[in-house]
Design a protein around this nucleic acid. Sequence first.
DNA 1: AGTTACAGTGAACAGCGTTCAGTTCTCCAG
DNA 2: CTGGAGAACTGAACGCTGTTCACTGTAACT
Lengths: 249, 249
Amino acid sequence: MTQPDMPTPPWERPPRRRTPARVPLTRERIVDAAYTVLDREGYDRLSMRQVAAELGVAVSALYVHVRDKDELLRLMYNRVFEGYDLPEPDPARWREQVMDFARQGRRRLLGHRDLAKISLGNVPFAPELLPHVEKLLGLFAAAGLPRRVQAIAGDLLSTYIDGFVLEESLWRDRYPETGGNAPEQMREEVNDYFASLPPDRFPNLVALADLMMDESNDYRFELGVEIILRGLASYVGEQDPDEESRSRR
Amino acid sequence: MTQPDMPTPPWERPPRRRTPARVPLTRERIVDAAYTVLDREGYDRLSMRQVAAELGVAVSALYVHVRDKDELLRLMYNRVFEGYDLPEPDPARWREQVMDFARQGRRRLLGHRDLAKISLGNVPFAPELLPHVEKLLGLFAAAGLPRRVQAIAGDLLSTYIDGFVLEESLWRDRYPETGGNAPEQMREEVNDYFASLPPDRFPNLVALADLMMDESNDYRFELGVEIILRGLASYVGEQDPDEESRSRR
DNA sequence: AGTTACAGTGAACAGCGTTCAGTTCTCCAG
DNA sequence: CTGGAGAACTGAACGCTGTTCACTGTAACT
């Protein structure tokens, strides 16, 4: 050990500890590993044991850093929003800005297998996520929406995004193999199925058979967002809807 | 035992077999039991073993009637729509009719604990459910919506309903005990939390604190549906949106 | 140098979905 | 009434799962 009264010569123990021999486990590393397992195995096979194995560590070691699997899933969820940078609200362009938010959200959820399943099980009220909620609300406020509409618009939009992506991944799960042209084949089969229904009992389904499973998820997604946007826009400048019923209570 | 050579008196064994001693297991009875377990234990504790125990039967007996747990969940999901009776489409009242569908959907999902979780994991394309999809589409067709909007409107609406109810139940799960006034207390706590945020960093959240967790889920739900309805209504009579981009492909 | 604090270990527990070789029961043909 | 076919159901087992706990080894501080 070093003498207390002598300065330590620099070559002796250069930094006090160069490499901690064992890389210490951290929440970050655990979440990283969890994402690796998620992408490789999918949500149903995402288990504490798999995550531990990915890190070359005993299962119980995880529980030192993470209360339980639920907390791990919450930590994974929080990361979905990392690096989301919403622009300053521009009242003139709020619709494009919200559409952009939606597109970005979908892209992030599609970035990891089954991530939508995790997202739907959580409410974005973790402290780390509040800045993002705040910014989205800012967009709606700038648009001039009534307060009550502002308060619900974020929910409505996020629910749609999560639900849409979840449905995308459900279809993917049902047609897992079949090589590269799986989505194409799936679309064809489903459309054929709808088209083959008895037209007297299912006139509308038959008539829309070609559109139920559109060739472009992107288009269907954006049309959905557009419908919501038009609904929101119809409230611009209005009084809080049903305001009097509130003061009546 | 009855004597072999004597005619059986009618009161002895009136029909050849009165009660089959063991009530035969059927899909119906299994789904019934599954709902009982779901209501009592919740989705996470809904297991094949619990269902079997509920029926007083070995686990493996279930697998004679049901391929796997996934199929059981699908059967449970199908029952959500049982007895849904949509009215004949009335073009003049399509908005009320759709709102009614939404209200009915939410009420059904709220009818059993965690049912929304099951609903979100399924697409309503089982043969038994197609009549309901057909009828909903009929409403949109009668409204005079463009075909592509018709094709997506059902998805949009169902996703919203499922997502909204799921979120309701997530909040319920987080505040399970605390007696009768749990929702009231929860609302207060959450609102206070939002109101206590630093106003310079979260101006919008603070400003909307009183509305984020409204006193009335009913009101928030219907406002969401109303937004969607207004968005849909804005398309009435329009050409298929982006139609030319489709023919361009 | 000895002590303290703790990250990480390995075994264990209870419960899960699913399978399968057997047993039991029902019903029909002879 | 008997015998047998076939379905319905059982019990045990396999390999998973989340979580806990007494333990070991290492690092840091006095």
